[in-house]
């Protein structure tokens, strides 16, 4: 199975961290339900064109935080995760996305006040869309 992971080789964020964040998102968002068999470290390395050193590190971190589980001889699976952990991932994913948006605004020399106004106008727009 190919995982819908997209790496940004330009980003300063380490590759293993990008994999972890995206996998957490896929698991918490329900795209990868508990029990799903994950690709082996070597197969994932081939698909993402990275080394097994990097994929192994991402898998180890995910295992330590309880998102995935490795069974000797059977492979790696998505673990059953608690609701609170799911919530935590979702909140932090949204938080980071908004933060990135604000950073983009600052890069284009917008003031925080102007960004806030933009944010408000997007909210108004979305509200309208929801009512229609």
């Amino acid at each position: 199975m190919k995982l819908p992971i997209r790496l940004s080789k330009e980003s300063r964020e380490p590759i293993y961290h990008q994999i972890e964040q995206q996998m957490k998102g896929l698991i918490a968002g329900g795209n990868l339900p508990a029990g799903t068999i994950l690709p082996s470290i070597r197969a994932l390395a081939k698909d993402l064109e990275i080394s097994v050193i990097t994929t192994r590190r991402a898998y180890q971190d995910l295992e330590q935080t309880g998102f995935i589980q490795t069974l000797q001889g059977k492979g790696t699976f998505v673990a059953e995760i608690e609701h609170s952990l799911k919530e935590q991932v979702t909140v932090s994913a949204v938080y980071e996305a908004i933060e990135r948006g604000i950073d983009t605004g600052l890069q284009y020399d917008y003031s925080l006040k102007e960004i806030e106004e933009l944010f408000q106008s997007i909210i108004v727009q979305k509200r309208k869309e929801r009512l229609e």
Binding site: K9, I15, I50, S51, I53, T54
Partner: peptide
């Protein structure tokens, strides 16, 4: 070189 270090 480790591949990721190499490509960066």
């Amino acid at each position: 070189f480790e591949k990721e270090a190499f490509t960066r």
